[in-house]
Design a protein around this nucleic acid. Structure first.
Lengths: 236, 236
DNA sequence: GAGGTTTTCCGATAAAACGTCGATTTTATA
DNA sequence: TATAAAATCGACGTTTTATCGGAAAACCTC
């Protein structure tokens, strides 16, 4: 926390940092939706039904085994109507996780407001990632097991959102260096890979085998451990 | 390294450990191939051509966009012949990475022979994982970006092989506890997730963005850092 | 090396899933 | 309530996956 003695440039930086943080999360949580929005209420409802149905079917059967016809049926519409909304199965699959991802960012932004240090914010971020996956297992299964790594998401709204996920951590790691608890000698990108990798691996294992049983607890433990490890690197 | 004074039970354990290690890698590197093996040489060649063609096409187009007809053409056979070998595209996709994976285990086993401590063996394992991915980028792209997380690999030969990948690390982590450089207070599965996660995230990032430019170097750095972090946890 | 058997290969075709289009119904609005 | 725009759907064409029966090649035995 900045002391009152510190003024001028330092103050400026602190203020810049706060605003940079807020605008980063603002931008991330409210990425522009698709250009063409539906005009009628009925259509908005239909769109939502499609997304819900798609999430269920994709999570149950996997994207490649899922059939457009099944999703349409589940949504209570005809196959051809679905094509009015999405031009292909791939297109649909890449749109499904977006709303949840935005919701996660928003929820995180709200919760992070009370945390002042980058250290606490990072801890919260990692813990919340795991917990959100547990709460929304269908979504998580789709995102982590089927879509995240896929190359073909490039140049998609979704790829940007996934990259945002990384950007937040990168931002906090750099602040961590400024705060002095992250080693400045380490490549920040490497540190990011370390953090995301550890947590994601935990989530993936849980999605595949339902182990560890308590993902929230395991996520917290992992997050605390990772941060403690980073701190250990500087104090020597 | 065991001192000469230590004999009897301790010696026994050391010997058991070595043999457990060797038999683990033996088992892993030589998992039984598919039950029905081809009888004629011509057919064996055809099978190889299919696998090579499939790797190329899958890596280029992604599994879901790839067409069986394209793979067959690339392999120089008819579509129906391909179906004599694999009952579906999915089946084929899950068989493709296997031979490379076995090769990796074998290569690792050979290289690890000269390393005596679990620490060195673990380091080598992590470094070699990254390096093998760099050397066999098409294979790595298929395995890491498309298949590894997929739920539907369950009950497949491939899933066993992927689990083997984890088992080796788990084995070494437990030995690390015995050797005293891994904290016994930590859940070994968590430690494994940490290690695999960090390295895999690095590999995935490289496959997607070709960053970091030098994967071998980055992999070595990451592996050394991870192990140093584990060591930091015990010395306090 | 001829005859018989098994293995491998392929063309034709069925089955399934994807995707399009014009006609029809519903909604918004004036 | 007349009209235009938006949304829906059934019918149909296309693409991709998968099957099957028979031809061709390899193998085996005498």
């Amino acid at each position: 926390m900045a002391t009152k003695e510190v003024v001028g440039e330092s103050e400026q930086i602190a203020s810049d940092t706060v605003s940079a943080w807020d605008s980063l999360l603002q931008e991330i949580a409210h990425r522009p939706k698709r250009a063409t929005e539906r005009k009628q209420d009925r259509a908005k409802r239909t769109e939502q039904q499609i997304l819900n149905a798609a999430l269920r079917v994709f999570a149950r059967d996997g994207i490649s085994r899922s059939r457009i016809a099944d999703i349409a049926a589940e949504a209570g519409i005809s196959t051809s109507t679905l094509y009015e909304y999405y031009k292909s199965k791939e297109d649909l699959a890449y749109d499904v996780p977006l709303s949840h991802l935005a919701e996660f960012f928003e929820s995180y932004h709200a919760n992070a407001a009370s945390r002042t240090s980058a250290r606490e914010r990072l801890l919260l971020y990692l813990v919340m990632s795991a917990d959100y996956a547990r709460e929304h297992a269908e979504w998580a299964r789709l995102l982590y097991l089927e879509i995240w790594p896929s190359v073909f998401v490039s140049d998609t709204e979704l790829r940007h959102s996934i990259d945002d996920f990384t950007r937040v951590i990168l931002f906090l790691v750099k602040e961590g260096v400024a705060e002095g608890w992250v080693s400045p000698d380490r490549n920040p990108y490497e540190t990011v890979a370390l953090l995301i990798g550890g947590v994601n691996q935990l989530i993936i294992t849980w999605l595949l085998y339902r182990k560890p049983k308590n993902l929230t607890r395991a996520g917290t433990e992992m997050a605390e451990r990772l941060i403690a490890m980073l701190e250990n690197e500087v104090r020597r």
